[in-house]
């Protein structure tokens, strides 16, 4: 299993990295917090750490730490637009429950 990313998502990541002017890719992970357990982390990566697992899709590096991988393995990252709001959406097959707004989840 792995974490995957759609081409559209990759294109948007690339564009944002270009705008930012530095960075080697994006980090996807989880942290424990929020109203129902865990929340996603989505950050730029300036340098990878030794434990990191690195994937590459459509020319973009996607970095995950092994601890997080357990919770989000099989997740597909996509780019979506909802009215004025646009950004990335995670399709995570491990989710058992999500809080009302979807910002945090339990597995």
């Amino acid at each position: 299993m792995a974490i995957t990313m759609t081409e559209q998502a990759a294109n948007h990541v690339k564009r944002q990295l270009d705008q930012r002017g530095k960075g080697v890719g994006i980090r996807v992970g989880v942290k424990t917090t929020g109203c129902s357990g865990m929340a996603y982390v989505l950050e730029f990566v300036d340098e990878t750490v030794s434990d990191d697992i690195v994937y590459e899709y459509h020319g973009v590096q996607l970095v995950v730490d092994p601890k997080s991988l357990v919770y989000i393995d099989g997740t597909e990252m996509d780019f979506v637009k909802e009215g004025l709001n646009e950004g990335f959406e995670f399709k995570n097959p491990n989710i058992a429950g999500e809080c009302g707004c979807g910002e945090s989840f339990t597995v």
Binding site: Y40, V41, F90, C101, E103
Partner: peptide, 21 residues
């Protein structure tokens, strides 16, 4: 699920920072 933005390293926002009012 919520739509996420890419944050600076170490600065991912905590969920529910924004309450719906």
């Amino acid at each position: 699920m919520a739509i996420l933005k890419i944050s600076e390293p170490g600065q991912s926002p905590l969920p529910h920072q924004f309450k719906k009012v």
